[in-house]
Every structure is written in C-alpha cells, then in structure tokens.
C-alpha cells in the first residue's frame, strides 16, 4: 500500500468516524427530545392530577412529610377536636372482630390503642391493660371521664419503650394519614412497641361502600360530618360527655352505627370550609374530614415495605378492611 493510499484510507476512516459521531449525537438529541416531551407530559399529567385533587379535596397532594403533617392537622385533627363529643355520642357499639381480638388476649397482656378516639375499645376486657392514645386532646378527655387510660400522642411518635407490648389495635385511623409513607410509618411505629410475636389489628375504610349503594371513585376524599352545636366542647364541660355516651339502650347494628352520621350525606365530593345546613328543623354545621380509602391489596403493599412483619389475615367486613399483622423479629434501631 502506498503512502497516498494510506492517507486516503485514514481520511476515509476519519470521515466514517465523524459520520458515526454525528449520528450518535443526533440520536442523543432525539433521545433528549423524547425524554423532554415525556417529562412535559408527565408534568402536565401531574398538574392535572393535582388540579383535580385540589378541586375535589381542597388541597394538593402533600409533596413532603411536613406538608402531610399540616394537611392532617387541618383536615383531620382539628376537625375531630371540634366534633369529639358529638362523635362520642354515635360511637358506642364495639365491632365484634375487635372485641374478639381483645377478649382472646391472656390475663395480664398489655397493649396499645393508637387513635383510640372516644375509648370505645379501652374497657372491653378488664383482665388486660390497654393504654389508649389519640392526637386529639378532647378525645383523651372523654376517655379519662370514662376512667380509661389515655394520653395525647402522635401515632408516628408513640411514647412507649420498644419490644414491650403483646398487642396493638388501631381502628379506623390509618386512613387519616395523608401519604403512603406515613401509613407505612404508622404501622412501623406500632410494630416497634410490640414484642416479637405480638400482633396488631388495624382497620380502614374501603373504597367499596355498599351502605351508600355506591363505590367511591377516588381514594382521597373529604367526608362530611353534620355537627350539632349542642356538642360544642368550647361551651360545655367535657364531663357532660357521659350523659350522651352511656346511652346503651339503643341497639343499633354495627354497620349502621358506624355510619349513622355520614349516611345522611351523599355529597362527599363537595369539600371545603365550614357551611351550615338545615335538616328537618335542625341546624347543622358541616365539617369535612380527610380520608384515604383503602383498595384491595393496599395493606399488602404497606406490609411489603416492612422487613420484620407479616400479614396473618386481611379481609373486608362491613366496608372496612381489617388486617392482622404479626411482628416477626425484634426492632432494629
């Protein structure tokens, strides 16, 4: 091969290389463009989703734990603090699944009720020791009036030592946490205080709500509470709660009882600020509570995130999911 041929050859090679590089660059640019388009579409989709969510529940999906904390404070805790006494007058019959779970614990077993509300489950079995906690001060006052053990605490920061209790219950509470991670953290925190082998019973509202004759289309919803002003705790002394709560003569079926108040409202999708309505001569103030309704498989996803837990049983009963979760090994801090 002559020198000329050689240089010709190498310049050909260079050209080829250059061509290849160009092509590569083009491809990269194209890739970038597609990615950008995808990103834009995703952003737009996210924005639309947020807008829909905002219209429906009155606020955007929380983007951080702190934001979620504030959503829960405003749309859950403050509402319950306001309606606590009225809520108490409608919640008195124990759910058999919870009752059985508490009754089968051995004498001297100790446990916690996280989000104990009006303390409906704190006096079920006197041979065991259940400490109730709620983030709403007014609920703990009601529990105390009924001579139950209760304290004010955040479900994500329980004031107990680790690896100590035999059982935990959290009834219709986990659906008030505003992000998936916080729902996982709530279960983790309950597991932390349990002994290995200890069991949690946790329940949540389901998206299927047969009592309403319809299913919720969305998981994140605002559920109205029709508040009667006679239950205002700001004017009343909390000790008056006993008058309404001890009325055990009314024998109301559990699924009716649980939804007695909400049942009258079908407009769950119209949220936001306090409003008043008149119904059969009685004036009600309407308060909206945030709920994340559970879908099939949701407890499995949550427990799937936790290494030292397993689901023993998970089922639907009266439009509520109930899930028994066992702690398989000690908490690693």
């Amino acid at each position: 091969m002559s020198l000329e041929e050689k240089s010709l050859n190498s310049s050909k090679k260079e050209k080829k290389l250059l061509y290849k590089q160009e092509k590569k660059l083009e491809k990269q640019l194209e890739k970038q463009r597609i990615q950008e388009e995808k990103n834009n579409a995703r952003q737009q989709e996210e924005k639309n989703k947020q807008e829909i969510l905002n219209q429906r529940i009155g606020f955007n999906e929380p983007q951080s734990d702190h934001e979620a904390y504030r959503v829960e404070l405003k749309h859950v805790h403050q509402i319950y603090d306001k309606i606590a006494l009225h809520f108490d007058s409608t919640r008195y019959k124990a759910w058999p699944i919870v009752e059985n779970f508490l009754n089968k614990q051995t004498v001297g077993s100790m446990g916690v009720d996280v989000g104990c509300g009006n303390g409906k489950y704190l006096g079920i079995n006197n041979d065991i020791y259940t400490i109730g906690s709620d983030i709403c001060n007014n609920f703990t006052l009601i529990c105390n009036d009924k001579h139950h053990e209760a304290l004010v605490a955040d479900g994500l920061l329980l004031p107990y030592k680790s690896d100590l209790f035999e059982y935990a219950i959290s009834i219709a509470v986990i659906h008030h946490f505003a992000t998936f991670q916080r729902r996982v953290d709530a279960i983790k925190e309950m597991l932390r205080v349990l002994k290995p082998g200890g069991v949690i019973l946790v329940t949540s509202w389901a998206t299927t709500q047969e009592w309403k004759g319809k299913n919720y289309e969305n998981q994140d919803v605002m559920v109205p509470w029709l508040f009667q002003n006679q239950f205002n705790m700001d004017n009343n002394n909390s000790s008056s709660s006993s008058s309404s709560s001890n009325d055990n003569n009314r024998d109301i079926d559990i699924n009716n009882e649980n939804k007695k108040n909400e049942k009258e409202n079908n407009d769950t999708d119209t949220p936001k600020k306090t409003e008043s309505i008149q119904k059969s001569g009685t004036k009600y103030e309407v308060f909206h509570r945030y709920y994340h309704l559970f879908e099939q498989g949701e407890f499995e996803s949550i427990v799937g995130e936790i290494s030292n837990a397993e689901i023993i049983e998970n089922n639907l009963d009266h439009d509520n999911y109930y899930c028994f979760i066992k702690k398989t090994s000690s908490t690693i801090v």
Partner: peptide, 17 residues
Amino acid sequence: KGIPNMLLREDEIYQDV
C-alpha cells in the same frame, strides 16, 4: 386532668426543615 400530653410541637418534629 390525669392525661399526659406527649405531643411534640411542630418545630420539634421538623426542626431541620
């Protein structure tokens, strides 16, 4: 009133934020 209040303030929970 017989009830311990174990709730942390917002700035205690989110002190880094």
